[in-house]
């Protein structure tokens, strides 16, 4: 069982978290063409790399965003939610 070391809640086993997928900024729905929108909905940056991802800690009910290297599975840093917020 992998451990996620979170500055707020300490080292917790990964089984306490639900994976919330990569952080992705939505294009403006009114401005995106059908194709651009479909690309946003379905396409992913599937190549390995350092990605910002949502992780929900179930026991505390808190969402975190971590940077993780999807090649090595290393958690690199906790990301401030403000960094991933966007307005519609």
């Amino acid at each position: 069982m992998k451990v996620i070391d979170c500055p707020h809640i300490g080292k917790r086993p990964m089984s306490e978290f639900v994976y919330g997928h990569e952080v992705r900024e939505m294009p403006k729905p009114s401005e995106a063409s059908d194709k651009e929108w479909a690309d946003y909905v379905f396409s992913r940056d599937g190549a390995p790399g350092v990605k910002k991802e949502w992780w929900h800690h179930v026991p505390s009910g808190i969402w975190f965003v971590f940077e993780r290297d999807t090649l090595t599975d290393k958690f690199i840093r906790l990301v401030d939610i403000a960094e991933v917020q966007y307005e519609l």
Partner: peptide, 18 residues
């Protein structure tokens, strides 16, 4: 979880309780 996450992501002033 979706509700909570969207509230965060959109930066809205709201809280969800399960």
């Amino acid at each position: 979880r979706t509700l909570q996450k969207q509230i965060l992501e959109w930066g809205l002033k709201a809280e969800a309780v399960n």
